[in-house]
Amino acid sequence: MLGAFSGFIAGLLGVGGGLIIVPVLLYVLAFEVQEAVLMHTAIGTALAVIVFTSISSVWAHHRHGAIYWQYFIKLTPTILLGAFSGAIIAQYLSFDFLRIFFAIFEIMVAMIMWFGISAAGHVDNLNRWVWLVTGYIIGLVSAIVGIGGGTMTTPFLIYNKVDIKNAIATSAAVGMPIAIAASIGFIVAGWNTKNVVGSLGFIHIQALFSIVVMSVIFAPLGVKVAHSVDGKKLKKFFALFLVILAISVLSF
């Protein structure tokens, strides 16, 4: 069920699915994984799932011709660096810090989306250093909180006058390198950690493959719905979705 729903939302909102997977895994793995590494394992596993889900989602968005690959190319170099370093940094952060940071971040992004805050200029007029810094921050924060970057990339593009459907599609593409770099980082960071049997660093292998099977199937369905609904309604739904997830993590 988690795989199906997270895959659908990944395709619909271009968020990678980690926003859903992390909170649910906190509950599912709570009796199996030590609390000291529970959040790290939930995040690492979610990022590994995103690697597979994003491939399915990106292909579906690409078939609609909705991905702006030029923005993907501008963001990716520093996103890779940020994602890997974020995974390494995360191992030194406490469970409560990661949980609260995740929730506050989601609420802030939701407010930007809901109130339609945007820049004066267009994304094509941004300086190269803005792309480099933004890419690094997106990769860093995404790895720390276990997301594919859509909750940062999508608002960033929308803020700079990109249509929401194209922003979602491009964010889905951006999520792939984030997930790959961060997953490698979480494997390295948790390599010598005493975790559950069958884990790979901070990645829970059984949970990974159980979720991936359905998420890959349902991601294209989410993409289909995203390209058939009104953009304004989609933006409002995105904002509400983030607030609900933030509350669920704070209440854990």
Rank of each mutant, 00 (worst) to 15 (best):
G18K: 11
I158M: 12
N192E: 15
A226Y: 04
I55W: 07
A179F: 06
I137T: 13
G7N: 12
V212L: 01
F95H: 11
L81D: 03
D230V: 09
L200Q: 14
F84H: 13
F97P: 00
I247N: 08
F156S: 01
G222N: 05
K194G: 00
F5Y: 07
A36C: 03
L38D: 01
A66N: 04
I178A: 06
A30D: 08
G231F: 08
F5W: 08
A66I: 00
A189I: 07
V213W: 09
W129C: 03
R128W: 08
P155K: 15
A120T: 03
A110D: 05
V213S: 09
F8I: 03
L157Q: 09
N195K: 10
L12W: 04
P177S: 07
F156D: 03
A60L: 07
G222R: 06
A10G: 02
I107G: 01
S118F: 04
I107D: 03
V123F: 11
A30L: 06
V196Q: 10
F52C: 07
K236C: 00
L157P: 06
I89Q: 01
G139D: 09
A173M: 09
A219Y: 01
L13E: 04
A219K: 02
G198I: 15
I138L: 12
F31Y: 12
I217P: 05
I43Q: 03
A90D: 05
F252Y: 14
D230C: 04
I55F: 13
V15P: 02
F72M: 09
T41D: 00
I144Q: 02
V28Y: 12
A90H: 08
M152S: 07
L38N: 09
L81F: 13
I244H: 07
I79W: 06
G14V: 04
V28S: 00
L75C: 05
V229P: 02
G149M: 14
I168N: 11
I88H: 02
V15E: 03
I144L: 13
L126G: 05
G121A: 10
L240W: 12
M152K: 12
I205Y: 12
L13G: 05
M1A: 10
G86W: 10
H64L: 08
I180S: 02
G149L: 14
G82I: 15
Y71D: 03
H227G: 05
I89F: 13
S215L: 06
L208R: 13
L25N: 08
Q91Y: 04
G222S: 12
S171R: 13
A143F: 09
G3H: 03
K165Q: 10
I180R: 08
L126C: 08
L2F: 11
V141A: 10
T151Y: 11
G175S: 09
I137V: 15
F95E: 05
A30N: 11
G149A: 15
F115N: 11
A119N: 03
L19S: 13
F238C: 08
F237L: 14
G231T: 13
L250V: 11
P220N: 04
V188D: 00
F238V: 06
L250F: 13
A143I: 14
F8V: 01
Y27P: 02
G17L: 11
A219T: 02
V223P: 02
I55Q: 05
G146Y: 15
G139Y: 12
